[in-house]
Design a protein around this nucleic acid. Structure first.
Lengths: 149, 149
DNA sequence: CTGAGATAGTTATCATGATAACTATGGAGG
DNA sequence: CCTCCATAGTTATCATGATAACTATCTCAG
């Protein structure tokens, strides 16, 4: 998350630009705007998901299993290929999704080291409840711009 | 942070679009790209700052005090107005910046509840060491685009 | 087969975000 | 000058990200 509330003014940026001549003022300005905007959206999404006892990560895991073409289950490793978190976080998060009944975990594959994760009916229903508001929230956010200048 | 590595393909988005007709496919697509790109930049910045025993938050606190026009010190409350983190995080982070010698904290204001935070010489030097690479990293990142299609 | 190394996932521990409830100080009405 | 409420910051605790080191299983060269 990027926590800066008020981005530096143009003058301030120019001031740093003359202090550090190699600085590309426009690139830095665009980057700060992007990071701040994305962070605000991510916060809104986290708050929205929390209403369904989900987090962004928990949601992403569910949707990644749901959207996988032709498979109904993925191994933890396959999920990790698609979601950029560390293995222990994946272990822990799958464990809570399992104990919350949103996914079911089994060892049915050939390789007994790996675990197959599939959506339960409850997981599928949760996704279905969450998705419309998710799309709506993003639509509103992206439509709103940020009003500055 | 937004952890999705491969964003959904166009077809997949269209598929969800027909399942959830109120969805604005372009807005969602743009939002996912923005969140992913910002998250990658934030990770790069965190890794860069870590080389100087800083975090993005520690850096932001330093630069906010440094850039403040006309003042050499800010209270914790004033810093919190500019940086979007909770009070306890601010307390803890200022405390470590203090014990690392990058800022100095005093009670010199009229209001004995508040604390003034100012940059030490070491804090100023650290900023000066960090800023050129910070601007360069952002310049490279923004220049590079992401190469996809 | 067997032993070495690779791979899948777990455990232990830490870092850093949050909220709730607390202390200490300040200010304003009576 | 007290009492009460507001404000500044802290403490306690939790949530969720990370890395390092571990166990269990698999693979393959000999």
């Amino acid at each position: 998350m990027f926590f800066l509330k008020e981005l530096p003014s143009r003058e301030m940026m120019e001031r740093y630009g003359s202090r550090y001549p190699e600085m590309n003022v426009n690139a830095v300005s665009d980057a700060l705007v992007m990071m701040r905007r994305a962070s605000l959206l991510i916060r809104e999404l986290e708050a929205y998901f929390a209403r369904f006892d989900l987090s962004l990560l928990r949601f992403l895991i569910l949707i990644i299993i749901d959207r996988e073409p032709g498979k109904e289950a993925l191994t933890m490793g396959e999920i990790k290929e698609r979601v950029d978190v560390s293995k222990p976080v994946m272990t822990r998060t799958i464990k809570t999704l399992d104990s919350d009944g949103l996914v079911a975990v089994s060892h049915r594959g050939a390789d007994r080291r790996s675990k197959l994760v599939l959506l339960t009916e409850s997981g599928r229903r949760t996704l279905d409840k969450v998705l419309p508001g998710y799309f709506e929230l993003i639509g509103n956010f992206m439509g709103a711009g940020d009003g500055s200048s």
